[in-house]
Simulated scan of single mutants.
Amino acid sequence: MIPYGRQSLDQADIDAVVAVLQSDWLTQGPAIERFESALAARCQASHAVAVCNATAALHIACLAAGLGPGDRLWTTPNTFLASANCGLYCGAQVDFVDIDPLTWNLDASALARKLALAEQEGTLPRVVVAVAFSGQSCEMQALSQLAREYGFVLIEDASHAVGASYAGSPVGSGRFADMTVFSFHPVKIITTAEGGMVLTNRADLAEHLRRLRSHGMTRDPAQMSEPSHGPWYYQQIELGFNYRMTDIQAALGLSQLDKLEGFIARRRYLAERYRQLLADLPVTRPGLQAQAESAWHLYVIRLQLERIGLTHRRVFEALRAAGIGVNLHYIPVHLQPYYRELGFAEGDFPEAERYYSEAISLPMYPGLSDEQQDHVVDQLRRILNSGSEHA
């Protein structure tokens, strides 16, 4: 089975992990700070805060933004659950903005219309989570302008987009978003096995994020409510969490970061090959913004079902049966049973629902060979042709 995504590890990665296992530090040690500093420098950001996974990163980013009961978080329905759940963790209400039919990202024009209406109704969001779907940023310049106009905190969920750029700046630079979240899950661009990070240019947010990831504790006498008892002393000054990354994970991430440029170059090469190989098939290829350079975490196509003569499910299952480990990113969050219980229903976000009825994620990872990619497209062509023959 050719998977839709997988990690790319080499001996240098293994050696980096072994070195930590042979050191004095396994959990909160020097590798974490080195990883944070290296990724911040790569992204041209002032601060980076490593945590155990990207869901935790989204959670503490929302808390640092001041999100709480009575507030609202808006995001896209075309995302993994965590982009919305992070608002619920904070006790806030969650709502969605439909997707752009070209890029399948949150639609900036739809957001502008929804904000204008919410201002009249007194229901503006405190936080908007803009997801860089498949590795391509949303229209961040437009979203940043809307954030200034309407006063919300803009968080870019760039879990798919380590190594991407937008408007000439690395994703994570803080040029447009208040905070940027990365994921280091094995199928992402670089991996720490599990892990995440929040990048920001604001020192106050970075300090708060570091405290939240470690039980809400501080050793800074300036933040304490009474004089320190001695060098061992700490205080819990707010409710935080054990969201810390380990040195083992950070060492792997730092080693992976050395290969980031090569990973991105290979993914972009494969994306261009897909674009050419799929040109004559009845599928819609990903739409690109002129300002965005995608990291290509995913390569998603949409089936032109009216031309195929097969159902979406039939094509998906036939590809799986042919040994192609396709996947589907994503089931619209508002259609999940939990969110239906909150009042959402079919028809609420029609573009995201249309997308879901047609989308298939094809294999995309640096270790995918040209021959394997040719095989993926050949199998897809065979299946689609079988439908047209019986149409």
Rank of each mutant, 00 (worst) to 15 (best):
D178Y: 01
M179C: 11
T180D: 04
T180C: 04
T180K: 00
F182A: 06
F184M: 04
H185G: 04
H185F: 12
H185R: 11
H185M: 10
P186T: 12
I189L: 00
I190C: 02
T191R: 00
T191I: 02
A193F: 10
A193I: 13
A193Y: 10
G195Q: 01
G196R: 02
G196K: 03
V198W: 06
V198R: 03
V198C: 05
L199M: 01
L199D: 02
N201W: 07
N201Y: 09
N201Q: 12
N201K: 05
N201D: 14
R202M: 05
A203P: 07
D204I: 05
L205A: 06
A206L: 11
E207S: 15
H208M: 14
H208Q: 15
L209D: 10
L209K: 03
L212I: 03
L212H: 01
R213E: 11
S214D: 15
S214E: 14
S214Q: 13
T218R: 01
T218W: 04
R219W: 08
D220E: 03
P221N: 07
P221E: 02
M224G: 09
M224I: 14
E226C: 13
E226Y: 13
E226R: 15
E226N: 08
P227Q: 06
P227S: 05
P227A: 10
G230W: 02
G230E: 04
Y234K: 11
Y234I: 07
Q235R: 13
Q235C: 10
Q236T: 11
I237F: 05
L239Y: 09
F241R: 08
N242Q: 12
Y243I: 07
Y243A: 08
R244K: 09
M245L: 14
T246W: 04
D247S: 14
I248Y: 07
I248Q: 08
I248R: 08
Q249M: 12
Q249F: 02
Q249L: 03
A251N: 08
A251V: 03
L252Q: 13
S255G: 05
S255L: 02
L257S: 01
D258W: 05
K259H: 15
K259I: 01
E261G: 00
E261Q: 04
R266T: 14
R267P: 01
R267N: 06
R267D: 00
R268C: 11
R268N: 12
Y269C: 13
Y269H: 13
Y269T: 12
Y269F: 09
L270A: 02
A271P: 06
R273W: 15
R273F: 13
Q276R: 15
Q276D: 14
L277R: 12
L278Y: 07
L278P: 06
L278C: 10
A279V: 12
D280M: 03
L281T: 11
L281Q: 08
V283L: 07
V283G: 01
R285P: 02
P286H: 02
G287I: 03
L288Q: 13
L288D: 11
L288Y: 11
A290H: 12
A290S: 12
